[in-house]
Computed example of a mutant assay.
Amino acid sequence: MPPELIAQVADEFVTDLEATTSDPHTRQAGVVSLTHVCGRWRDQLVNNAKYWTSIFIETADSLRDLIDRSRRAPLSITGSLEKDHTGDLQKNNEDKLSLVMGVGSRLRSLSISVSSQVLGNVVGQAHGTMPILEHLEIKVTGAVGATNLTPFTSPVLRRLQLSGMDSLNDFRMLFTPALTELSIIDVRTAMTTLDIRQVLRGLPNLMVLKPLDVHQSTPAP
């Protein structure tokens, strides 16, 4: 089969996947399955970055391979990085998050669930920001400690969804005028009404505000 026809079939297959499933794991598995048709298909697809710009996190090795295949293209990454009772799994999740942070300059969308320990251990050592990030979703699980999310800052961040953070100080730096959609739930140190007002003043383009945890402060006598 000529390369042009392989590309046409692959493009139609990927388009159909995107139209019929919203599950990123299923979409990724479908694209990967095309590389198993034969060596010629594999060579053509693996060397074309456009098929590897949406990545679902599985193992550290597969994540590394998919990032390599994406070359320098902007990325959308999603998946779970939650810790369980085994120390080895925690280390694996730290390795995976480190890989994600390593391509921060290329991230256009990031959606992860992660333990507070993994997040704190990796983000605390990260440098730089994410200049083209438009969508960020972080769900933090487990015992919560303060975690500075400065490495996730982006001047073009439009959609922000956070869950399980410790306090407003962890993520205040993510609020930029570009934000159009904001959702913050389960903040352990509840935000006051004054906190919410101050946040909203700096978000002139906000169009969607999903429920926030608000702690009504007691008026002074």
Rank of each mutant, 00 (worst) to 15 (best):
P2G: 14
P3T: 11
L5H: 03
A10P: 04
F13V: 08
V14F: 10
V14H: 09
T15S: 14
D16F: 07
T20R: 15
P24S: 12
P24T: 06
H25Q: 13
T26L: 11
T26F: 03
Q28R: 11
V31C: 00
V32Q: 02
L34N: 12
L34C: 12
R40H: 13
R40F: 08
W41I: 14
R42V: 03
D43N: 15
N48L: 09
N48V: 06
I55P: 02
E58K: 10
E58I: 07
A60F: 01
S62Q: 12
L63M: 07
R69Q: 13
L81M: 08
L81N: 06
K83W: 04
L89H: 08
L89P: 01
Q90C: 05
Q90I: 05
N93A: 03
V100N: 00
S105F: 11
I112R: 03
V114L: 06
S116P: 12
Q117M: 10
Q117P: 00
Q117L: 14
V118N: 03
G128H: 02
M130G: 01
E137H: 14
V140K: 13
T141N: 15
A143P: 02
V144Q: 13
G145I: 11
T147M: 03
N148V: 05
N148H: 11
P151H: 12
P151M: 12
V156D: 00
R158T: 10
L162M: 12
D166Q: 15
N169H: 11
R172Q: 07
A178T: 09
L179S: 00
I184Q: 09
I185P: 09
D186R: 15
V187D: 08
V187R: 05
T189E: 14
A190N: 03
L194T: 15
I196Y: 02
R197Q: 13
R197Y: 10
R201W: 00
G202V: 06
L203I: 05
N205V: 05
L206A: 00
L206P: 04
V208C: 00
V214H: 00
H215K: 14
Q216R: 13
S217A: 12
P219A: 11
P221A: 10
